[in-house]
Design a protein around this nucleic acid. Structure first.
Lengths: 209, 209
DNA sequence: CTGGAACCGTACCGTACGGTACATTGAGCG
DNA sequence: CGCTCAATGTACCGTACGGTACGGTTCCAG
């Protein structure tokens, strides 16, 4: 995986493209429209990104390059530290998933999932979801090393945590549901999910089979 | 909500449209292509469904009309009956969500979520997800009446159950990920989710705050 | 100053699609 | 038979978009 980067000018154009996508969806993201909005020429677009699909892919990698996922570097001296770190992760996750740029890019990739063997979907999974999962898994394993949680399969534990936090609100938001039930009481949602996670994997609990 | 129905001929055309959508995604579903594939005229399409958006909406309601969601009519004499009913629900849910027609329609609605105030998304939620939720809520409340589970908010309990069952596999499938990790060991996934649900809401457990 | 590279703006081309019009067919029915 | 109505299939129109070509401008190196 090459971490292909772009020039500042190209980044500015990609930023503009994201704005167009967020504002009007995929239909609003035309090469002519982007050229007009970004004050660049269509010829430059094709020179830089190859074709329209290349542009879409570049938008995903560019957006991913903006999001940094810091690993846990706290001391984790107490179970409460760990719980708080999980809650922070949960709130971050909810925040990212309900962001309009994230929603727009996910809608774009899902709408194109039937073309090119879901190339855009693979990019979203690799650059968007995988870093988040890595960060969470590191956190979970750190907690396990301290004996705060118990599980055999980190991936299993992570997926359960994800399900408890996100539920089906991501798909509902992708479908256009107004963000009721999420992001209004985000901290409480996060705390509840973490509490449930500890009920399943904390203290004397045992990972099922 | 009017349950507008269609003539057999129109149903056949809609079935054909679903096939086209599943096979080639939204781009493959053109009015000319559908007319050719279904041996009907474009003029009939516009007469029946108004315009292309009307056709898409009709496809969703038609597909929803095919899926019946029977309510629980079992005796629930033992906690095991209840657990098994939940497991059946979980397997059905996984099966529906990973069906190719469901995936194609969800992709379609998500891809159009920026137009018409997400009209297609609202249709999917109303005709697709809501009936499933109603069935599950009835099941959950039946279990609560028997004292097998304890919760204050049925909606909360349902969403948690949904998250435990589906996790983020739905979005991953929508993004085009091959169905690894789901539907291969579907019964085990279902059993695990139900076991976790009981750990949170079963026997002596108490709904958190 | 000069050459060239990068880029902008615009005009242009081919195509594909949504939507409409129309001629034709065929079934039901007096 | 002749009328009506529905539906088919085809031809057509306008438009919008992806992609290309080209002239003009800026900027930098030598």
């Amino acid at each position: 995986m090459v971490t292909e980067s772009f020039t500042p000018r190209q980044n500015a154009v990609l930023e503009c493209a994201l704005q167009l996508l967020v504002a009007g969806g995929e239909r609003a993201l035309t090469t002519a429209g982007l050229a007009r909005a970004a004050n660049c020429s269509k010829e430059s677009l094709y020179k830089w990104f190859g074709d329209r699909d290349g542009l879409l892919a570049a938008m995903i990698t560019y957006q991913a390059s903006k999001v940094r996922t810091p690993g846990p570097r706290e001391t984790m001296a107490t179970p409460d530290d760990f719980s708080r770190s999980l809650a922070v992760f949960a709130e971050d996750l909810i925040g990212v998933l309900s962001g309009e740029v994230s929603l727009a890019l996910n809608r774009l990739a899902i709408g194109q999932a039937d073309r090119d063997g879901a190339r855009l979907g693979a990019l979203v999974r690799e650059h968007g979801r995988l870093p988040i999962e890595m960060r969470a898994r590191a956190l979970l394993e750190l907690g396990r090393r301290h004996g705060y949680v118990h599980f055999a399969d980190t991936h299993e534990a992570y997926e359960t945590l994800y399900g408890l936090i996100v539920r089906d609100s991501h798909v509902r938001m992708l479908l256009g549901e107004p963000p009721v039930g999420l992001s209004d009481d985000r901290p409480q949602r996060a705390r509840l999910a973490i509490a449930q996670f500890f009920r399943l994997y904390g203290h004397g609990a045992q990972d099922t089979e």
